[in-house]
Write a protein that binds this DNA or RNA. Structure first.
Lengths: 238, 238
DNA sequence: GCGGCTCACATTGTCAACAATCGACTGTCT
DNA sequence: AGACAGTCGATTGTTGACAATGTGAGCCGC
C-alpha cells in the first residue's frame, strides 16, 4: 500500500496540470492581496465575505487561510476572528538578523559552484532591479529585489533553505509593502546592490560576509526609524 | 475596523482556554503518531479512515492535515492521496547543514546574555539526556536531545529562529524515529554532548563553532550510512 | 501476447446547513 | 452612578451529503 508511486516518473513529470484546485488559487490570491497591501495589516478577514468574494464555499477558503496562517501572514483566534499580522519593530529586526545568517549560509553552499550561468543570472537580476529603481517604480523594485536575493537561494538547490527563505520572504514583503504605502519611494539603493553583486562575484568571501552584514544593517536601520514612529500596535503573530 | 483588540492585554493573557478546537487536537495527535513512528514514512493517510479514527468529520481533519503538510511532514497530490513524507539522503544532509548554521546563529544571539539560569538549564538538560543514554532508553533520549537543543533556541527569544527550528525539528524527529525503528540504539553519544555543553558554557566562541560543526558532521555521517543502505525511495516533500 | 480503451471504484474536492462560542449591548439591581 | 447578569448578533467551528478526479482492473482488437 505504501508503494503507490512506482515507475511513473515520466508520467508524473509530464502533463501535470491537475485541474487547479480552488484552495491553491485562493491562497495565491489572498497572499497577493495581503502582500500588495490591498488588505492592511491588522484588518480582520471574515470567512463568509471572502468566500463570496472568491466565489467559493467556506471550506476551501478556510484551508487556504490555514496555509497563510502557517506562513505567518495571518493570525487566528478561535471563534473570534482572523487578522492580517502586523509586524513590530522586533519582528522586523528578527527578519533582518535571520537574513544575514541565511544569506551567508547560502553563499557558503554555492561559493565553489558559481558558474557562468549563476554569474549571468545574478547580473541580470541586478540590472532589472537597477532599472526599476531608476524608473522610481517602487512596487516593481520590491519584486525585483526579492528576485535578486531569491535567485541566490534558488541557486543553492538547498530545498530546506529555500523553504525557509519562502517563509521569511512573505513577512519581509509584508513589511516592505507597508513601508511603501506609508513612505513612498524608499530611497536610493543602487550603490548598495551594486556592491552586493560585485562582492558576490569576487573571490573574497569575507568581504562578501561584511557586505551582507552591512547591507542588512542599513535596511534594518531604515526599518526601525519607520516603525518606531507609529504605535506599531502589532497583532502579534506566532 | 482594524482596532478590535485594544486594552484587553490582561484579559487575553489570563484565562485563555478557548474550549479546545478539534483541529488543534487532531494535528497534535497525528503529528505525534507520525513522529512516534506509529505511521511509517510513505504510508498513505486516507481522510475518511482517519476522520473515523479521531471521531470527527473530514473538515477539521483536512485542516489539520493541511497544517502538517505545511510543516513538511506530509505531502499531498490532488485527488490522489496524502502520504507521510520519506526523507532521502539529501534531505537529511540538508537538515544537518542547516542545523549547524542555525545553532551557531542561536549562540551568537545569546552569547553575551548567558546568565545563571541559562547555564543551569543547559546542564540540567544535558544530565537528563545522559541519564536516558545510560538507561539505553532510545525513545526518551530522542526527546531529551531535542529538548537540549530546543532550550538553546528558546533562550534566544528569537521568535523567527524558534519557528524555523520547529519546522526543522519535525523532520529531524521523523528521521530519528525511522533510524531508531531500523537500528535500535543509535550508539554512545555521551562524550559528544558533554563536549557540546562544555563549549557552550566556555568563553571561546570559535571553539564552540568547531564543536557544533563536528557534532553535526558526526550525526550526518551516521545518517548517510543508514539511509544509503536502503533504497530511500522518498515520497518527495516540498 | 500486447497496447489501447472503457468502466467502476476509491479518494479527494466542494458545498450548504447547523451548532458552539465570543463580544457587546441593555436593562436591572444595589 | 456603578456593577452585574442576561440576551442578541456576528463569526467561527463542525457536519454530512454531493461532485470531480485519478487509478487500476478487465476487456477488446491487433
Amino acid at each position: 500500500m505504501a508503494d503507490g508511486a512506482k515507475g511513473k516518473a515520466l508520467g508524473s513529470v509530464l502533463a501535470r496540470v491537475p485541474k487547479a484546485t480552488f484552495r491553491a488559487h485562493i491562497a495565491d490570491g489572498l497572499r497577493a492581496a495581503i502582500l500588495n497591501g490591498d488588505i492592511e495589516p491588522g484588518a480582520q478577514l471574515v470567512e463568509t465575505a471572502l468566500a463570496d468574494q472568491f466565489g467559493v464555499s467556506r471550506g476551501p477558503l478556510r484551508e487556504a487561510m490555514r496555509q497563510l496562517i502557517d506562513e505567518g501572514l495571518l493570525v487566528a483566534v478561535p471563534y473570534t476572528g482572523t487578522h492580517v499580522v502586523g509586524l513590530s519593530v522586533d519582528d522586523v529586526r528578527e527578519i533582518y538578523s535571520m537574513r544575514v545568517t541565511l544569506e551567508i549560509f547560502a553563499f557558503e553552499q554555492i561559493w565553489a559552484r558559481r558558474d557562468q550561468a549563476f554569474r549571468q543570472g545574478l547580473v541580470a537580476r541586478r540590472d532589472a532591479l537597477t532599472a526599476c529603481i531608476d524608473a522610481e517604480d517602487d512596487a516593481a523594485s520590491i519584486v525585483a529585489e526579492l528576485q535578486l536575493h531569491g535567485f541566490v537561494y534558488e541557486a543553492t538547490g538547498h530545498k530546506l533553505l529555500i523553504r525557509t527563505w519562502d517563509s521569511i520572504r512573505g513577512r519581509l514583503q509584508l513589511y516592505w509593502a507597508a513601508h511603501h504605502r506609508a513612505h513612498g519611494i524608499r530611497g536610493p539603493r543602487r550603490d548598495g546592490h551594486d556592491r552586493y553583486v560585485e562582492m558576490a562575484l569576487s573571490d573574497d568571501f569575507d568581504a562578501l560576509k561584511s557586505e551582507i552584514t552591512d547591507h542588512m544593517a542599513r535596511g534594518g536601520r531604515q526599518t526601525e526609524d519607520f516603525l518606531r514612529g507609529r504605535e506599531a500596535r502589532a497583532v502579534q503573530g506566532s
